[in-house]
Amino acid sequence: MSDWKRSSVCLCHSSTSTGSDFCLRSAVRKHNPAVDVYHSTAGETALPLLGLCEAAIEERKSDQRTHVLILHTEAGHSDVSQAEWFDNTAWVHAVQICDLERISHVDLLLTLALGFDFVLLQKLPLGHAAADQSREVELAQMMGGERRLELFVSQLELRNSMAELPRAGGRWPYKRPVLGPNRRATARACATVLMPTVHQPLNLPQDAPYGTVELDLSACTMCQSCVWLCPTDALSIGEHKCELVFVESHCIQCGMCKSICPEDALKLRPRIDPQPSADTQQILHQVEPFKCTSCGVPFVAKSMMDRLLARIWGRKGVQASEDVQELIPLCHSCQIQKQQGGNTKRAPMMIKAGQVSRQPL
């Protein structure tokens, strides 16, 4: 027999049951030394398998045998036990997870980037959980886990998969990933470590929470609706409110920007870019600024101001008194000064009706 280690991890929030010494979803005592009772707390980077990975990477430094991680439920305990008797793989850590549905692509990528050469995951029964698990596994495979991550449904499949694994893993080939402030950032860091030779973005499935946006410059009016609705600040407004700025690593492909865009100028493109450029700001669109007619400071996109004034002067659904019309081409500071009766220093380019285009809107 080979070197096997058995343990359990509780992920079922059993801490909510005061005084209980049992995992809520299996007959595993929480105070058993073999059980890692993981309780996530607010603000914590939730990585329940990090402790296993830390131990595995330390073991890997002195033992260059292939390290295999098996994740299974209580129902799969018997299959894993039987597979152990027939196994000739070098080093195996079999972990019983009480709530296997909570293991996502983030956890799988972490194990592959930090200590384990292969991960064998018990397939969940048919249903929504099984479909979600398949998507998570596919995503992890496309983000650097290809040929190192497999699902099994029986003891025979598990034995066959393990029989094909190499006994010697050699020197650990990956740099240690830099764990991010959240699970998403950690997944990106692990993907970068697992794909050191990939220098171009890789396309991902349509429901992947990573990607970029494509902007139709001819359609974008810089209305900023997408910016105000973006939940992660992947989209923002740059200098003088005349630049649309995008950070790919922040984009979760939620589609809110696309749904709110009145010009249908945005499209989503799921992908993973392992290069550092994904963490930097990119200017998607840059337009001519409109300068305050009092102080001359740029404060808004000229195209937006042209559209607003064209609506007012053309009486296309927007009405404004003469006092309000005088305030519109002023920046916020000059508007306040004018409303308070202060003297604003007039620039020589006072706006007139003929200065803006009045194209139909």
Rank of each mutant, 00 (worst) to 15 (best):
I252F: 12
I260N: 09
Q96C: 00
L361E: 04
G19V: 04
A130E: 07
C98T: 11
D36Y: 04
K267E: 13
V35A: 06
V297F: 14
T344F: 07
S8C: 08
S62N: 12
M143R: 01
H105W: 09
Y210F: 07
G145Q: 06
T232P: 13
A140R: 05
Q355P: 03
L50I: 06
S40P: 10
R176H: 08
L202H: 00
T232D: 15
M305W: 01
V245N: 09
S259Y: 09
L109V: 03
D36R: 10
E248P: 01
Q275R: 02
A265M: 05
H77N: 09
F299M: 08
R29L: 10
S8F: 11
E58C: 03
T16R: 07
R307N: 07
P270F: 08
A168W: 14
L235N: 03
C254G: 11
H77M: 13
R65Y: 11
R65F: 11
G19I: 04
P125V: 03
V245F: 09
S303I: 08
A42E: 09
S249H: 00
E58W: 00
T73D: 12
G341A: 01
A278Y: 01
M305K: 03
C226A: 13
S8Q: 15
G238I: 04
P209T: 00
C295R: 14
R271M: 08
T221F: 03
R183F: 01
L179S: 08
C331S: 12
G341Y: 03
T89H: 11
C98A: 06
S8L: 06
I97V: 04
T221K: 15
W172G: 10
D306R: 10
D273A: 06
V68S: 02
V178Y: 12
S15Y: 12
A163M: 15
A185E: 08
E146N: 10
Q319W: 11
D323P: 06
E239V: 12
L47I: 07
R311L: 00
S7P: 12
Q286H: 06
H31L: 09
A90S: 14
I252R: 12
S134K: 08
K316M: 03
Q253H: 12
L327V: 13
V356H: 05
V153M: 12
G170L: 05
Q155I: 01
S294G: 15
T197F: 00
D117I: 14
C261A: 11
A90K: 02
H105Y: 12
Q335S: 13
E101H: 13
L268G: 10
K338T: 15
V297W: 15
L165H: 09
M143W: 00
Y38H: 06
P231C: 03
K345E: 08
Y174K: 02
A278N: 01
L266G: 14
V213F: 07
L121R: 05
D99V: 13
G180W: 08
K316Y: 07
E164F: 15
R159A: 04
E239G: 00
L361T: 07
H39M: 13
F290M: 13
V300F: 14
F290P: 14
I237G: 05
H67I: 04
P205A: 09
Q325F: 03
S303W: 02
G127E: 02
L50D: 11
V300R: 10
C292G: 11
I70R: 03
T186Y: 09
P201I: 00
F118W: 04
S62P: 13
